[in-house]
Amino acid sequence: MTDPAEWVDRHGDTLYRFTLARLRDADSAEEVVQETFLAALRARDQYAGRGEEGAWLLGICKRKIVDFVRRRNRLDASSGRESSDDISEGFFDPKGNWRFDPRFMKGRPEAALEREEFWQAVRGCLKGLPRRQADVFTLREIEETASDEICKELGITASNLWVLLHRARLQLTRCLKLRLEQWGVL
């Protein structure tokens, strides 16, 4: 069994990058990496060298990321900064029609995936989302976690989750449309 301090040198950066991509914040990522190693230390006996060390640590890290998102989600929900229930705000006119053309993809959308500008826009737009929305969107679309699992993990209702995801999608759509048009991509 390797010395735990060696884990940090061997796997610390990989876990850090993995976490940073999902939490989008350096301090939070450091905290989660530390929690991961501490949990690994406690669970060391059960692990007992079965399987690959990096994969084992990554599994723990994923759990810790979800735990962290749960705490952050509670905090953000109770701070009530996003209490507005009017989803349509800004996106639809009073009659319920789109205020803007939501279509940002023309031609062959697959080609967009090859362009760094597209991903740059996606990252920028995701950063602009309220944190709760960005967090559930990340779990759902990037981590491909099932909806009912997200609800269970975060302790929120299904309709709560759907509203968060829908808002995230509307806002990302509008943001991508603006950015991609401005840059003449797509």
């Binding site: 940090v8 950066d13 990058r17 940073l20 350096a26 450091e30 760094e116 996606v122 990252r123 995701l126």
Partner: peptide, 12 residues
């Protein structure tokens, strides 16, 4: 691709 290119070499 959701990780900033600058952060792809990020380290503790």
């Amino acid at each position: 691709r959701f990780l900033d290119p600058a952060a792809r070499d990020a380290a503790l």
